[in-house]
Write a protein that binds this DNA or RNA. Structure first.
Lengths: 123, 123, 123, 123
DNA sequence: GTGGTCTAGACCACG
DNA sequence: GTGGTCTAGACCACG
């Protein structure tokens, strides 16, 4: 479920952070669902417990999860818009870069369709 | 010209790398233009020559610039298509991220129009 | 193991790069074997950690090794063909040079037999 | 005639050195032929006179050329074997590397034919 | 502990 | 003057 890439240059804790949000969006994780414990997940993934703990802390800071002391971590109620905001900040930036590079808005729109198509067939 | 953000978590050499490509895109730097020498740019930016040298080496490896020994570094001939490719790689990635976050392709297209509009008025 | 020649005009980081590939070819280093840490190898060789780091970065860029953040650097899976390719690029170049120098293909072939014979007796 | 590649990482003086020997082998330059003056060649190639001078010095040190003070530089009588020796030292080394990489002598011989063929069609 | 980035500076080959 | 290599060391993020 939380498959991560240890060889990636993206920090593991960041991958876990994004993966969790992705699982919520996909409906795999829902409001009030309990997350695996730090130690359990760390063991399963073969990573340092501190790394998992850091991801959970970041998720809690962003109000994506909440934790009850001694009981564990749970998915918060989170509006879709909040999640989307994150992705869109990066998106806007990449649009700006592409416009600067001389790509036209229409080319970008075609590109969206191409990527959407590709993701649908091989997600 | 090569304004960089020393506070950023993005490595200075990487900022210089991207900045150079951006300057080419904007037409500020053209084919065969000479870049400032490693030492001159380092002094101007207040960073270590090694840091600038690293950026130049990466740019040369990517064929964005070439250097003539003992003479300096110069902008290579880069096709517009190659320049666009640079920008589109980032764009595609951000599209993928947005789709994962549950943003629909149509929302992204609207977003492109919004950003385009904003850039046109305040570039 | 990683014996290098500090007097050589060949940069140390390049010697380390080639040496690593040579150790893989000889079977001394195999897939997933861990390399000594940057600091440990630097100390052992009496060179600066930055120099070793540069060699490792080049090796990683060439996919000869991979690194797991916070854990260290490891030998990638490289096919025998890939290893041979490395050696043959140099070989082709030396053949071209020899042809330019007026050596005939037959002379080169005889030379191969001579070297092979010599290596067999004193490897 | 002395076409060189300014962008190459091979020093210009070394390219000139090799080029001169190549021209002798091809018969373009023969015993007692006069070489262009340092200044003339430097101007023609658009390089620093010091660079040409260095190449000539190296050629003289290797007895490939001789110079008469005030008159210029001339091609020496040089045996083919002397020239070949240079190339063969590199060749032997590359053969050793290839053997270490597990390439068989027969594969190397086939490779020689392939390179010879390619050079013949596009030198 | 591990690699990544950076500084301040030196020395060198090449031109 | 120009870039390439290297040292000696610091600080940092990640794990």
């Amino acid at each position: 479920m939380f498959d991560i890439d240890l060889q990636s240059r993206v920090p593991i804790y960041e991958q876990l952070y994004k993966k969790t949000i992705e699982l919520i969006i996909k409906g795999v994780l829902s409001e009030n669902d309990q997350l695996p414990s730090v130690r359990a997940l760390a063991k399963e993934l073969g990573v340092n417990p501190n790394t998992v703990a850091k991801a959970y802390q970041e998720l809690e800071r962003s109000k994506v999860i909440y934790s009850l002391s001694g009981r564990g971590s749970f998915i918060s109620r989170i509006s879709d818009m909040e999640i989307k905001e994150y992705a869109l900040i990066d998106f806007d930036e990449s649009v700006r870069e592409a416009l600067k590079a001389g790509v036209t808005p229409d080319e970008l729109k075609n590109r969206i369709d191409a990527v959407t198509e590709k993701e649908r067939s091989a997600p």
